[in-house]
Every structure is written in C-alpha cells, then in structure tokens.
Design a protein around this nucleic acid. Sequence first.
DNA 1: AAGTCGTGGTG
DNA 2: TCACCAAGACT
Length: 291
Amino acid sequence: MHRPTYAEPILSWYTEHARDLPWRRPDASPWAVLVSEIMLQQTPVSRVLPAYEAWLTRWPTPAALAAEPPGEAVRAWGRLGYPRRALNLHASARAIVDRHDGQVPPAYDDLRALPGVGAYTAAAVASFAYRQRHAVLDTNVRRVLARMVTGVEYPPKTQTAGEVRLAESLLPPDAETAATWGVAVMELGALVCTARTPRCADCPVIASCAWRLAGKPPYDGPARKGQTYAGTDRQCRGRLLAVLRHASGPVERAALDDAWDDVRQRERALASLIEDGLIDPLDDGRFTLPR
DNA sequence: AAGTCGTGGTG
DNA sequence: TCACCAAGACT
C-alpha cells in the first residue's frame, strides 16, 4: 500500500523547532536518557526538568544510585507522582550494576527486562540513547499517526497490534534516521498535533493529513476514561508518603493518622504502600522510607 | 483487559 | 470551573 512520504517534512520541521531538552543533548548518557524516560512516564516535561537535573547531579551513574537505599530515591522523587517509578529506577540501577557491569544495556530485550521499563521505554532508550531502529509508540506518536495516517481524531483507548504495525511500517530504513524520526514525531505531537487544540496551521504535513482531508471528523468512540482524584486511595497514598518524604527519619503512626481522616481508607492505603515497598514498618511501631 | 497508580497545569 | 490530559507500566 502506498502512503505519502511523511519523513522529510517532519524531519525538517524537527530540525527547526525541536526544544533544547537536556536529555536530547549529545552529551546525555544512556543513563540520563533512561532517567528522563522513567520520569516522563505520565508526567509533563515542565515538571520533570528540575527533578531530572537534581537527580543526575546527585546520581550521575547507575552505580551511584545503586549504592543508596531505595528510600533516598523515593525522597528525591518529590512530587513527580507515581512514586513506584522511583523504586523501579532504583531497582533498575541495581540490576544494571549486577547484570550489565554498570552500563545501561543497549539491547531492547535487556532494557525491557528492567523493572518499570515497558515496550515504549525500552524502544525509547534503544533508539534515543543507542541510535537503534525501533518504533517508539507513545501517546504523542499514537495521536499523530491516528490523525495523519488513519484519519481519526484520537487513537483507541488501549494500544493495538495494528498501531504497532503501522508505526513499524513508517520507520525509515536507516537506523540513525529512524531514531531521529521517532523523536521528531513525538515532538510534533507534543507541540503541534496536540490532544486538545491542534495547531494545524503550523503543521508540516497538513497537506497529506488524512484527518484534515476528511474534514476533521470529531472523535466518535466510547467516552475516554475520567481520572477523578479527590478522595481516592491514590490521593490518600500521596498524603501518607508525603509525610515520610518530609521527615528526616522514622515517623510515629500518629503523624500518619493526622494526614488523612477516613480510618478505613487510611489503613488500606498504608497497607498498600507497605505492600508496594514504598514504606517500611519498623518493629517499634514507627514507619520509614525503605532502607 | 480494564483498573490502578500521583500530581499539577489548563482550555 | 472542572474534566481532561501528561514521553506508561503492571496486573
């Protein structure tokens, strides 16, 4: 099946409009790229930037992080959200030291085997850090391809095999070009082909965009899932963990009791945080970040 | 395979 | 204002 060639206009657009992000600089190590990718999972660039700089200053290598207790990673994670990512990054650092001689592995399968590294993140590190040819299919790329190629406003709620095949079919044959193509499509989705209000006037492929050519039909699929937060277990977990992050050492149960009113919910949240390894109960009844 | 897991910015 | 969204992973 013949498709218009999207690569040249998008690559040219990227050359001109790419943001200067620290993890894209030539001196960014594979470890720096991995750290950025984990932090960027569901968290906007603007909030990641300061945490990323502080993290890499303190832990410039996997070995540096691996030498610390996991609780230090959780504390340094701050308010990035989804704190199990901090635990995953710490566990990945230790696995990298143990299994890969302290070097972030270049092989996709080895990356994918690290905790918290799924299909997207493994492809991103292999592509961006090691310049290999992998389809990087994140929320931005999925949206761009849905519009540009498929002609619909939004991709399906859950990623399909068809989307993977499509992304792979569009990959430039040359590895170095493919690596740039991946980050370029992501950037296009982040800056121009945005979810809410796409800036079609600034789009380098407006002429061949299937969604525009179809008259920009609105999304007609099932309602997208809402993410209520206030009053949820997630908010409760966040409050409890914040108490631990702000404390210099172990805290009394009373300090946690003060952080959330509903007793049942608080106990459930605390149990799940302990189960997840984000909080350790001590023999004396106090609680601490994992050591 | 649909739910769960944080937090904050924004149209 | 408030529902939606943000470089997902895991179960």
